[in-house]
Design a protein around this nucleic acid. Structure first.
Lengths: 232, 232
DNA sequence: GACTGCTGTTACCGCAGGTAACAAGCACGT
DNA sequence: ACGTGCTTGTTACCTGCGGTAACAGCAGTC
């Protein structure tokens, strides 16, 4: 066994390499055909047959998990960078982070679709694909938890602050996701606009400026004006 | 054959009635077996066979769409009620709405799972089910648009306000959804707590109280203290 | 040469969604 | 009475998917 560098290591290395190749092939297929790509298609793209895929990744979930991890890690890294980047104030940092996320999903919507809605049962029905929906994906969880720790670090929330931070983390991530998802489809405005609107919301936008129809006019003390005019 | 209950009566019923019965049967199955219920199972529960289901609903998506519409409409109605209910201030109304949503998904998680993540491929793997995710479902879109109109009505946002309202609508709904999804699984706190934390967030919570680690200490002017201690 | 561990294959299973094709009951217009 | 047509139901099948034997080569090691 232990003789020299050995065949075992070589084998493992080639196995890793092979795995990487397979992942890249899978990536290509998923990006081309969408998340509903079949194992057969992926195997064909890789120039092999199904059982090999299963030997490497166990089952379809395993493959998709591995595939998702790469993209998730990449996205998370850039988000962390934006979150840690120097900025004049927190608002700028928040805007930068939101913008990073939105830029990512804008640049590679296919990847985004795969990470978020991998179960879309194909686009044979380009109509009002009801899809019966699907749900939020572990990526969102990871993002939520990640953001929660950052919030807990950065804001001093006192006792019970961890709980608050987690709620806020998941809430903010959900806001970002839903708004991004909707924006990506309807494209109602420029990215920068969306970022500003979302930051306004996070900055308590829906707190001020009540209309007369509400019971008490304004409970906002010295409300810092909401910015909503179009910006250059 | 196998008249079972009452074939004669069934025969007399109109297509609409039959459809309703089928939907109710499907509902039962989905609530029992989860969203991955097969057409065969649903047909069996209804005491008939597959082709009939297909005649009534076209395909599985049609059935699920019809099924989802009922629950969606119901949920939406109660949300609208909460949103329109009399309250002392807007914060109370927001809290009531959030609480209504969370109470609904808490009371009937199966329905919620069906509406939001109907594609969950079963729970044969209670482990770290990566699931590869799924996505947000039209219900969220509908909620987002709905809330957007309410926001546009209730807050006077000036020119371009409709755009802001839509962004906020979808953002808030996403926040609610993601936080609820996470909360429903981890149950880290009582529902009321979650509601308060989320409202704090919406009220601009993440704006104040920066820690020293950040670059500039505090840009919050006369920060109204964030409420986060446990409340009765 | 026998053994091991990897690569790869073909051929199959079970089950899902979905679709003929055909059989029965009832309502008619003649 | 009769056929015609509609609806409701059936059985039996197709396709394609995820997943799994079982077997065939081809290293290097003892």
């Amino acid at each position: 066994m232990r003789t020299g560098t050995s065949q075992r290591d070589d084998q493992r290395q080639t196995a890793q390499q092979r795995r990487k190749e397979l992942l890249e092939a899978a990536d290509r297929v998923v990006l081309r055909d969408g998340p509903e790509a079949s194992m057969n298609a992926i195997a064909a793209e890789a120039g092999i047959t199904k059982p090999i895929l299963y030997r490497h990744f166990g089952d379809k979930g395993g493959l998709y998990r591995a595939l998702a991890k790469r993209h998730t890690d990449a996205l998370l890294a850039s988000l962390r960078a934006a979150l840690d980047a120097p900025a004049d104030d927190r608002r700028q940092r928040v805007e930068a982070t939101l913008d990073t996320y939105l830029a990512a999903i804008e640049a590679r919507p296919q990847v985004y679709r795969f990470l978020m809605h991998p179960a879309d049962h194909g686009q044979p029905e380009p109509e009002q694909g009801f899809d019966v929906g699907h749900h939020s994906a572990p990526l969102l969880r990871r993002l939520g938890e990640e953001l929660a720790t950052v919030i807990a670090e950065r804001l001093e929330l006192g006792p019970g602050g961890d709980e608050v931070a987690r709620v806020w983390g998941h809430g903010i991530v959900g806001m970002m996701h839903a708004a991004g998802d909707w924006w990506l489809r309807d494209r109602p405005c420029a990215r920068g606009q969306l970022v500003h609107h979302l930051t306004d919301l996070l900055w308590g936008g829906c707190r001020w400026r009540t209309t007369g129809s509400a019971h008490r006019a304004s409970e906002a003390p010295a409300a810092p004006r909401v910015r909503l005019a179009a910006r250059p």
